[in-house]
Design a protein around this nucleic acid. Structure first.
Ligand code: NAD
Ligand code: NAD
Lengths: 207, 207
DNA sequence: CTAGCTTTGTGAATCATTTCACAAAGCCGT
DNA sequence: ACGGCTTTGTGAAATGATTCACAAAGCTAG
């Protein structure tokens, strides 16, 4: 099951959200057409995306909503929970810690770190902010699946190196830097300034 | 100059950030190889990306850092400032308003709106939070280039419709919904849960 | 049980993006 | 001023993603 495009995975994630809405509304089956309409693609795209992983529909009828939800959760690895460490108790970190959406979808923030003495020891959402100097000892006996990096740019790469050394295999990075990691570690960078800049480009070149 | 891939634009934005770092370090010229190395691509990709917009380098030498910075700013539409309205004075909104990076790159938040009476009238970073019911009157005489939507999902589409009616042509959306807008309006959605889910997929299918 | 209708699953075709590879240009040292 | 070295700019080739189009499958009504 190698080599599925990232764009496909992102759409599967989108379909899952739509399916969960349908499920909440008690809708039992859905066609690729209906999924596509709400998701901003075409029905052929939906079917092709799913076909990489199996055939989940019934011809003439469509897809069973609860069944497809289960399948997509399994494909995306969302049929388990993840232990997440947050590094950087700043403004963005604060918003993330308080956001319930993550826990709802299986991501539990279980540790928070910062260097700022004014922040270390404070309680955030039931967790004590720990000294990031003690990252290694604090995470020695806690299994961390993912780390979220929300520190200033210059701190991000050194922290990424330490997280990798600790065995963390997935990092979500908000610092506006390109992280270098071994190829068995996966990094996703969310670069908000870059998003604004693509808007800016579109505004000046279309519009 | 139609039809440049979005992936190209995103890389240009990345190159610009790297070039600004080089500029701060007093580096005068840079090769496509050097830009690629730090930006996670190949030198051929860098040259191809730039070639869509002109030829900015000197063969045998590379690119003048300050010159290319100027060119990229012009291409991306960053040689001007943008007036941005923030809709939703919540947790993410708070982080965005306090973030200096946006102002530094030419994006000025000039108005903030919310529905919550507890938030309306409060001062945020020198701006008074306004009632979003009065969006139309408040923005009647203020030219808004972009809106940032940081409300709950269910409020996002109605607000997008009102912003579009007000002539806003670019929206950065943080709500986990797919917005529908006329095709002369450009929307970028930042879906953090989706980023975590692509990490989750990679973890379960590689690693 | 059959005819008609609907919708899937998927090769083949199209369209888009990236990589290759090399001639053309410019610099530097002699 | 020339030869050697470096690096750009860009068609052509390769790779990757999306769209097309249709046979196969299943459901429903009669
Ligand atoms: N706030 C925003 O809206 C926004 C938008 C786009 C990008 N970003 C990026 O996100 C990152 C965080 O932004 P923020 O606004 O939350 O910044 P912030 O300054 O509020 O928070 C950063 C936190 O990281 C901590 N820190 C610094 N070095 C550390 C280390 N070595 N180990 C652990 N913690 C450390 C600081 O003490 C601080 O608490 C930055 O890279 C910023 O560029 C933020
Ligand atoms: N906080 C996070 O880390 C995070 C992460 C991912 C996604 N999001 C998404 O970002 C959005 C905002 O998240 P948040 O954590 O800041 O939520 P929040 O609840 O803290 O803030 C939302 C704000 O929007 C306001 N609001 C509601 N309806 C409005 C309307 N019609 N007009 C104007 N304002 C209105 C609310 O009063 C509130 O102040 C949500 O859609 C959320 O799903 C947040």
């Amino acid at each position: 099951m190698r080599k599925v495009a990232e764009s496909t995975i992102r759409r599967l994630s989108l379909y899952l959200r739509l399916l969960e809405e349908f499920e909440a509304q008690g809708i039992a089956t859905v066609s690729s057409e209906a999924l596509a309409g709400r998701g901003g693609t075409t029905s052929a795209q939906v079917r092709k995306d799913l076909s990489f992983f199996g055939s989940f529909g019934k011809r003439g009828l469509g897809y069973s909503v609860p069944e497809l939800v289960t399948e997509l959760r399994a494909i995306l690895g969302l049929d388990r929970r993840y232990q997440v460490a947050l590094i950087g108790a700043g403004k963005i970190g604060s918003a993330l810690v308080q956001y319930r959406g993550f826990r709802q979808r299986g991501f539990d923030i279980v540790a928070i770190f910062d260097v700022d003495p004014a922040k270390i020891g404070r309680e955030w959402n039931g967790l004590v902010v720990q000294d990031s100097a003690a990252l290694e000892t604090a995470l020695a006996h806690e299994k961390i699946d993912m780390a979220v990096l929300v520190t200033p740019g210059e701190a991000a790469q050194p922290l990424a190196d330490r997280l990798v050394a600790l065995g963390v295999k997935a990092i979500l990075n908000f610092a506006p830097v390109q992280l270098t990691v071994p190829h068995d570690v996966v990094v996703k960078t969310v670069n908000l300034a870059l998003e604004l800049e693509t808007l800016s480009y579109e505004l000046t070149n279309r519009g």
